[in-house]
Every structure is written in C-alpha cells, then in structure tokens.
C-alpha cells in the first residue's frame, strides 16, 4: 500500500461505498481543498446526523475551518460533493446559518449590535426592503436569547470577546436556520459566555435543528457534543462521541502533539 495511486484508489472506493442518508442535514463526500499544491483538506467524508450536535476536532492547521468554508462554498473546492438535507447544498443555503470566527472581522467597523443581528435578515430584506418594527423586534428577541438585549444600541467596538461571539450567535439565530455551522464559537470567551452559548445551542438541538462546531477544547467534547468528526487534513474517524472519541483515535489525529498524559486527563467515554 505504499503506492500513492493505489492509496487514492482505495480511498475513492471507500467514498462510493459510503451511502448518504436522506435525512442528514449535512453530508460531505470526497471534499478536497488546496491552497497551491499542498492540500488543506484531503478527500474528507462526513455525515452529520439529524438533530445532533457535532464537533469537528483536530490539531491546528488540520483544515477544520477550511472544511466548513469549503462545504459552504466560501472557499473553492478542488473536488467533492456536499449535500444538505438530501440536495446539493447551494439549493438550500437559506436553511443554513454560518457563524465565522469572530477574529475574522474588524470590530471597529461603524455599526451597532442590533445592526449586526439585522444582517441575519438579509435574505428577507433583500436590496431595498425597509427594516420594519417586527424585524427589529425579532433581532432584539435573538439578542435576548444570548443575554445581550441591553447592548442593542452599542457600537460593536465596545464589546468584549465573549460579547462579540454572542452577537454573532444572535445574528445566526435571526436567520432561523435548520443547520447551524459555527467556527470556534468557544475560542477565547469567558465562562459565562461559554455557558450562554452552549445553552442556546442545546436549545437549538431540542428544537430538532442540527449544530456543527469547529471545536478546540477536548475537555468539553463529551459534555457538549454527541457526534464527532476527527480530522487532520484527512478524515481520521467519525461517529458517536461515545464510541469514536477514544484515546486511540485522538492519538491518531494529533500524532505526537498530544501527550498521552493529557489524553488520560480527558473525560473519555467508557470504552
């Protein structure tokens, strides 16, 4: 199996064999993304179960964020298919809400908290639609859900990191989607914000929506999520947290970068 061509062939065969369940909110098959000639994501499959909370786990530079962006078509993909709710994703973009990393925008931008949340209604408002009172009330209700209603009139530059993340989540809530894709929603936020966010996400799941998070904190995986995708450019393992989030799979994903002692401290599901 040292012949790379053979390896590719077997990989492709595997993909054909992996069926797409019709009710999966997000199914990715053979997704490859490359900046230049070094692949950032190589031939990755993923199948998000309906009504689940899925974590995408992997070391820095493993292509977690890129996988999400490529699935959404924000960065171009070299190959691969992405289905959402059983049809090509581009056809059901209106049922999907995406929360980028908060560091990806300039927080000195001249805009207020409520305006950011109203951006979530762009599909409804279109080019010239006026922002009416019921739009504003919906935006406020979304802010209330993340505990930020009093901050509606604030300039966004005056927010803490955790508050910025909450505003981004409120904007996604305004989109009223069936599939939520979040890029590192817990990165650099305070404990109260982390709890506020996870409460909202669990409520979404209870409403039978699906949530997918790029996640970096291995210690909280078993508490927060029920499905996990481990990648390091390639797909390492995927499945229910209980059977997939194992020391062996983590070792495979992180290689030497994750000390065995560290793995021992994690609350791993009983094997």
């Amino acid at each position: 199996m040292s012949n790379p061509a053979l390896e590719l062939a077997s990989e492709a065969g595997e993909q054909l064999a992996r069926p797409v369940p019709a009710d999966s909110p997000l199914a990715i098959r053979g997704l490859t993304v490359s900046y230049g000639e070094k692949p950032a994501v190589f031939s990755v499959d993923a199948t998000v179960p309906a009504r689940s909370m899925t974590a995408i786990i992997g070391p820095n530079g493993a292509g977690k964020s890129t996988l999400l962006k490529a699935a959404l078509g924000i960065v171009p993909r070299l190959s691969g298919r992405v289905l959402a709710f059983g049809v090509p994703l581009a056809q059901v973009m209106h049922r999907i809400a995406y929360v980028p990393q908060r560091a990806s925008v300039d927080w000195d931008f001249p805009t207020r908290v409520i305006d950011v949340v109203l951006m979530g209604l762009y599909r409804e408002l279109g080019l010239l639609g006026l922002v009416r009172r019921h739009h504003r009330e919906r935006a406020l209700a979304c802010l209330e859900r993340v505990g930020m209603a009093e901050f509606a009139g604030r300039q966004i530059g005056a927010l803490s990191g955790g508050q910025q993340q909450r505003v981004f989540l409120a904007r996604a809530l305004a989109q009223d989607a069936d599939l939520y894709l979040l890029d590192e929603p817990f990165a650099g936020v305070d404990a109260a914000t982390e709890r506020a966010i996870i409460d909202v996400l669990k409520a979404l799941k209870a409403e039978k929506r699906a949530v997918v998070c790029v996640h970096h904190d291995l210690a909280t995986v078993t508490d927060y999520f029920d499905h996990v995708l481990l990648i390091n450019v390639r797909r390492i393992a995927e499945g229910p947290v209980a059977s997939t989030f194992t020391a062996e799979n983590l070792q495979k994903t992180y290689g030497g970068r994750l000390a065995t002692a560290h793995i021992d401290q994690l609350k791993l599901p009983a094997a």
Binding site: M93, H94, Y98, L125, R171
Partner: peptide, 20 residues
C-alpha cells in the same frame, strides 16, 4: 440600491457569502 450587500461584504465577507 446596493448599499446593504456592499456594507455586509465590507464588514464580514465570509458571512455575506453564506447569505447568498
């Protein structure tokens, strides 16, 4: 006519792309 999408793209291009 285009102030809304142009502002959105200036603030958050990735989110804009995901909003169609």
């Amino acid at each position: 006519v285009f102030r809304r999408p142009m502002t959105l793209v200036a603030f958050d291009p990735e989110f804009s792309a995901s909003s169609g």
